[in-house]
Write a protein that binds this DNA or RNA. Structure first.
Ligand SMILES: [Mn+2]
Ligand SMILES: [Mn+2]
Ligand SMILES: [Mn+2]
Ligand SMILES: [Mn+2]
Lengths: 236, 236
DNA sequence: GAAGTATTTTTGACTAATCAAAATGCTGGT
DNA sequence: ACCAGCATTTTGATTAGTCAAAAATACTTC
């Protein structure tokens, strides 16, 4: 049986939910899953039990859920479709980066593997989508990126923004208006736990102060990390 | 309520089914509808009754079904999405004309009006899809084309192939291999009711004989019709 | 460790879409 | 006018997915 859109959405939510867990190698609680899917808690429980029957997830009652090997591959391919479509919409169809998520949310269940691969080819086999989210390859594998956020990177050191983890339109607009999109070079000047904020110097000496909640959603590459990456590439 | 894919499929099947009826201004029988959708007869009856409740179709028990104003507009927009997507797949994504139907069958329910319009714009507001099927405009309106087939057009008179009414892969391949795609200029040399066949002279004096069943699926413009069309355009 | 709170599971019910097979209605030919 | 055959509708049942609210369990706090 090929998975329904509903099953695909559950698998994707578990995939992304587990990845976003603070403690790694943990199970995603039913409450979080239900919330991510906009569904009643009992609905998530029921669905997860049938997913467990099909061998796509492992389910520990009162504890949570995680993907099996098979489930993870399926989920990764849904995520791949989503992200390739998002980049296609921006690069080929002229969409803005804050407009693509909803459209991709539908298309991820409708595009064939064939079409996704055509898009992927046309885009030059990209590694990341418009938000800097990594794109799984045809096997569902992601090469992990060393990630730091504006909250954890070194101060007064040039860093490059690589990823913005939030699909909210107004947040993405805000980021764009203040030149904090992936690719921009910036420095974190100061962090103040009292005011719960982070001061950033962008290009043209444009200064901007943002809350820590927002700062944690902006990921960067440090020069050091970039050097390590470069070394990996050249040694291969 | 926005219509489900199922409702969209029923409306589209009625739209296309009624158009293909030999006697015009008739109702589509349940049997034909059920067959077009690959569904049991009873299922079609039940669904049509609920569509009638929603005011999308008019249903005459034991007789058949037709679209209301509202249903026809919705159906035409589904057809529009299907055909714009098909042309996009051919022109932009490099698909062959015999490969696009299945993909479009899924995408017609997933692409937003916004995305369809972007495709439409990118394609230069085309009038027909890769098979010569007319594309409804944003309002769902089609400007009717005067249609003749290889079975009805004048003999030994140059005509231009404009449309091939069949989604079957092998038939489309056959048409392509014998240079009978939309745009080609040909002449019908002879029709023989005894052998149930039609002899056609294509380009390079390539001759080909096909059955009447196949011939009826290849539509053409006669020079006369083309002249009338041209007149309409210039007088406007 | 008992009590209270938060989370999770169970229960019972509902909607959309479908099928198989029985019942019904229509129609053409004698 | 009748009946046989065919199309259509009805009936009864099934599956996927969902919710609200009750019951069960786990976690916190004292
Ligand atoms: Mn997205
Ligand atoms: Mn993204
Ligand atoms: Mn088609
Ligand atoms: Mn077509």
């Amino acid at each position: 049986m090929l998975p329904s859109s509903t099953v695909e959405n559950y698998l994707k939510a578990i995939y992304l939910g587990v990845a976003a867990l603070t403690k790694p190698h943990r199970l995603l609680p039913m409450g979080q899953l239900a919330c991510a899917l906009g569904v009643a808690p009992g609905t998530a429980t029921t669905m997860v039990k049938t997913l467990a029957e099909s061998g796509l997830v492992e389910y520990e009652p009162y504890t949570g859920v995680a993907l099996t090997e098979a489930g993870e591959k399926l989920a990764a391919l849904v995520v791949r479709r989503h992200r390739v479509v998002e980049l296609f919409l921006v690069q080929v169809m002229g969409y803005r980066w804050d407009e693509v998520h909803d459209e991709a949310e539908q298309l991820e269940h409708a595009v064939s593997d064939r079409l996704v691969d055509r898009m992927d080819e046309m885009l030059g086999r990209p590694a990341v989508d418009p938000h800097g989210d990594p794109i799984p390859d045809q096997e569902g594998v992601i090469t992990p990126q060393p990630a730091q956020s504006l909250l954890t990177c070194p101060l007064n050191t040039p860093v490059t923004i690589t990823r913005v983890i939030d699909q909210d339109k107004s947040f993405l607009r805000f980021i764009e208006n203040h030149h904090l999109k992936p690719g921009e070079s910036i420095e974190v000047e100061d962090r103040d736990s009292a005011s719960d904020s982070v001061r950033v110097r962008g290009k043209d000496d444009h200064h901007i102060t943002i809350g820590t909640r927002a700062a944690s959603k902006v990921l960067v590459h440090t020069p050091a990390a970039a050097a390590i990456l470069l070394e990996l590439v050249t040694s291969a």
